[in-house]
Nucleic acid binder design. Sequence first.
DNA 1: AATCGGGTGTCAACCGATTGACAGGCGGCG
DNA 2: CGCCGCCTGTCAATCGGTTGACACCCGATT
Lengths: 220, 220
Amino acid sequence: MRKLRRHSEVPEATIHRLPRYLEKLKLLQAIGVEDVSSRQLAESLDIKASQLRHDFHYFGGFSRPGRPYQVGKLVPALETIIGVSEPQPVAIIGAGHLGQALANYANMDVQGFPVRGVFDANPRLVGLEIRGQPVRDMDSLEDVISQEGIRIAILTVPAQFAQSVTDRLVKAGIVGIVNFAPTDLKVPKTVAVRNERLAVGIMALSFKVKCILEGDCGIE
Amino acid sequence: MRKLRRHSEVPEATIHRLPRYLEKLKLLQAIGVEDVSSRQLAESLDIKASQLRHDFHYFGGFSRPGRPYQVGKLVPALETIIGVSEPQPVAIIGAGHLGQALANYANMDVQGFPVRGVFDANPRLVGLEIRGQPVRDMDSLEDVISQEGIRIAILTVPAQFAQSVTDRLVKAGIVGIVNFAPTDLKVPKTVAVRNERLAVGIMALSFKVKCILEGDCGIE
DNA sequence: AATCGGGTGTCAACCGATTGACAGGCGGCG
DNA sequence: CGCCGCCTGTCAATCGGTTGACACCCGATT
């Protein structure tokens, strides 16, 4: 990696592709592939090779020119760029069905995001064990976050509680929030939020489905 | 709604905003709001008013010019456009934690997507009741889909089974798939797929978090 | 040693999406 | 009645992302 430009210059669209690159590269690594050309990698991800090179270009010099990328170099480089070169502990707030699903989501650890705290306000859920972790009472939120050095929280509480929980998280020093509640959160500019809205996904799909069923899609 | 252009001309980015418009408008409707200007609506969604008008412009004539939008007109119009003017039954394939979370996801029905079939290959899960619905054996997949007229499937099976299940779904007449498996599915062009990759979301967030922690974000 | 095939880095053209500007409609008020 | 403020529909300018083209590099092969 030659020279890292300021992160702020990396376009949003590129950022969203980085995890996919990493994912695929880890897969290749696992099956013993050492070299991979931009074309191979791009095709397997269904994107254009020029785009992939363009993306990598933001970070510069992953390969000696004229030679394909070396998986063994690329993986740690991408991990560093993305920020998972060492495990990022995360907290899950809300141990409802979705929260439990995520806490159980096998790859969480493997992907570099070990779950270090699951919280819920419902006393009935508190104490329950999920993947060897107890569901904790919301009271301990701040303590656990600071003790474990957690920077990222996953929010799976009902929409009506999302904002107040968020405020607590921000105060407790959380820097990034993955928000599954169907609400827009208000946070200071120093906190990053990513909204995962399940319902939006299925509706956008529904539009296309309608489109297909009505033969209205531009496929002649 | 004056004159509907071909759906294929509606930009992707607009499509992804439509569900958010609908969501917010339903909310407004619920609290009795009748009129809403593009500025109000846009601000509450954190987008520019001009963009909102531009989006609506693809479908034309939601309001008499010079007058604000009427919530009561807009909601059904959007529902028709998105394709949820009548309930779209969906199937969930894979009754693991994520599948169960989605099946339980309260708003599914309300959003216009009643779950009409939950399937799993694991005999231990088959028969389990989720929200009054039994988990069914994969054997009955095709039958249920055709009997219930299901067009949309939500895929929450492990990655290794995703493609073979997809092939069955396509054969059974499914037209849209929301894919939660971390794999790219191969489908005919007449089937729409939307990938929801949970891990990608958290990684993209991690990049920004790193960015914030390193003071490298362009915020001077 | 020269050549060839395949590779990356880089740039400029292209394309789609966002934004700002403004013409024209409507209702309320003096 | 005429004006004023607020509104939408629409278009043009702008911005960001994608794509294709090409210069240059490398190792293998003749």
